[in-house]
């Protein structure tokens, strides 16, 4: 008779819970993902807000040669907590600025990939006519040797893009498009599978039977329901985009030298690795930590969004 001991005032009707609140509750159970989320927010603050506080121009080179030579290759001091590089530029400022570009490239490239992937996946899953050809296209892209092809693309179009849009914007757009165009296939396969299953469900049938046009069925009924697998794919896509961008920069086919990204900083640091090992270590740690955090968050999200795991 334990139920009777509860006073009536304590019995309250639980507020209806939204799906996203459930997801958040489940996500918080995953300790690794929570730590990763906090770390990632700190990294994002470091690169976004950091340059507003640490106001040294990352590309500032002392114009007076005597001063410039004195400023070169300095160890950690209060003026330059991570020291200066071979041209006397502040390494802390460069790492902050590089992080901005690396994260921006990764985010935009992921958005491009997810946009293409979702479009192809929804079209292939929903319209039977184009299914065959779109999936053959996906298979073909999966069979392409991506890294060699990305290198070739960068090499072929970098100068042309830089001539039209300027060196920084041109390279940015080219890298973002190149990474996006070569990494949408997994998203499209996942989305197609989900759409194929959703299409047969009663609510879609109901929508169709009252004469809803296909466009609105897709936008209102299908897309919201494929959101969760797309979210997971997007998170993991950011991680791989960061790595791809830094590989391109590391092989010397990414951003120009006065436009530092983490990969480019590492590439520049390798030449002086024996004397100044920290120039390789800092950007490397930044890349690794960011990707590790994003991967852990992706894992946590996957668990939180999976209704079979949720609530256990």
């Amino acid at each position: 008779m334990t139920d009777a001991t509860i006073p009536p005032a304590a019995v309250k009707i639980e507020r209806p819970r939204s799906q996203w609140r459930d997801v958040w509750t489940q996500f918080r159970q995953h300790k690794g993902a929570m730590v990763a989320l906090v770390l990632l927010i700190l990294i994002a603050l470091f690169v976004v807000v950091g340059p507003l506080i640490w106001r040294i121009d990352p590309n500032f080179i002392e114009s007076d040669p005597v001063k410039m030579i004195r400023l070169r290759n300095k160890g950690p001091t209060w003026d330059h907590p991570l020291g200066t590089d071979q041209l006397g530029r502040d390494i802390l400022a460069r790492i902050m600025f590089g992080g901005r570009i690396s994260l921006a490239v990764a985010t935009v490239a992921m958005l491009v990939a997810i946009f293409i992937g979702t479009t192809v996946g929804v079209l292939a899953g929903y319209f039977r006519k184009v299914d065959g050809i779109l999936m053959r296209l996906t298979d073909m892209f999966l069979a392409l040797p991506l890294l060699p092809l990305l290198l070739v693309m960068m090499f072929l179009f970098r100068d042309a893009a830089a001539a039209v849009l300027g060196p920084s914007l041109g390279t940015f757009l080219l890298i973002v498009l190149a990474i996006g165009v070569t990494s949408w296939m997994h998203a499209s396969r996942i989305v197609r599978g989900e759409v194929l299953a959703l299409k047969e469900r009663e609510f879609v049938l109901a929508a169709r039977s009252i004469g809803t046009p296909s466009r609105r069925i897709i936008l209102r009924h299908i897309l919201p329901n494929v959101l969760s697998p797309v979210l997971v794919a997007a998170t993991l896509g950011i991680a791989s985009a960061i790595i791809t961008e830094s590989v391109l920069s590391f092989l010397g086919l990414g951003f120009p030298p006065d436009f530092p990204t983490w990969g480019r900083l590492l590439f520049d640091g390798v030449d002086a690795m024996r004397t100044y090992p920290d120039r390789v270590v800092w950007p490397g740690v930044a890349i690794s930590l960011t990707v590790l955090c994003v991967n852990y968050i992706g894992d946590g999200l996957r668990d939180a969004l999976d209704p079979r795991v949720r609530g256990r």
Binding site: V281, G284, S288, L292, D299
Partner: peptide
């Protein structure tokens, strides 16, 4: 294993060299 595919090979390689 998460470390293994999060840390890019160009960093582990250089770190090991170092």
């Amino acid at each position: 294993s998460t470390m293994g595919f999060s840390v890019p090979t160009f960093f582990t390689g250089n770190l090991l060299i170092l």
